[in-house]
Amino acid sequence: MHEDNAVAWFCTYTPLEILDASGLTPVRHFGDPGSLESADSFLHPAICPYVRACLAAAIAGGGPHHAVFVNSCDGMRRLYDAWSDRFRDDFVYLVDLPRNPGAGSERLLAREYKRLMRELSHSWGREITTGGLLEASHAREERRLDYLRACEGIYGAARLRLAMEAHTRPPGDVLPEASEGGGNHGAPVLLTGNLLNPAGLVSSLDRAGASVAWIDLCNGDRAFASPTLPRGDDVDGLLASLARSYLDRHPCARMSEPERRYDLLVERVRSEEARGVIYASLKFCDSYLYDFPRVQKRLQEEGIPLLRLESDYSDGHVGQLLTRVEAFLEML
């Protein structure tokens, strides 16, 4: 039976409501972007740098070693592999995640949640009740709404840091005041991609004078864009509803239904009155590497200017990007 309650999580498809309802403290792991190389003896350098940064930090002793992973991409699966091999005495669990929408996928995912509950109960000896799951779900929804209120008027790196705080702090904690609001005097743009380091590429957008008004990243606004509050009279009903909500939320590029994602992106550009889109993704993330040409095509059709940037998560090279970003902003 484990005694320490902190559990690391990585992917925004992690059902935090269930971890909360188990009395655990889920903490999102962002890794150490500065020490990627120390993961090289476990993971090939051509694997997602976020994944390698998380492993590097964990090996160095950072963050909880109990961890819940989601089977969302090759990178996450490989991190689970390395983590479960390295931390054999800890609770290390992989939750499946279908790509497709529909009743079969909802059923599969609801069963996954139930299985996770059983495993948590086995490892920590705590049963999840209907009331407990509902309460945890409401607290998560409150956190989501808190974030959406708190991020108003906050841009760029400051906004991304705030989102990361909202991920990491327990739902009951008050969110900190956002630091300086980032670049909010330049052209409003929308940032889309997978996951970025606020101290790296995103800061360089601020420095170049962009007002990043919406951060469509998995460590940014996207994670708070859709409610996941379940409805139901018992645990099974709540899990079924939760599964439906997670499959229906604003998707990442790994999921099926790309057209829906492009529609949401374009809608967001319009609603934020963004004048352009910056597509920035971590290297070696296949979901976003294969997605770019279609995003480019759709935005061209919509007449929305687009700039593509790439990040290695540590972003030692961001100075070199400034000129490109400045030129893009001038064009807007």
Binding site: S41, F42, L43, H44, A46, I47, D74, R77, R78, D81
Partner: peptide, 11 residues
């Protein structure tokens, strides 16, 4: 570019 095979090679 093969995250499946390279990623698992060490294990």
């Amino acid at each position: 570019g093969c995250r499946q095979s390279c990623g698992g090679a060490q294990l």
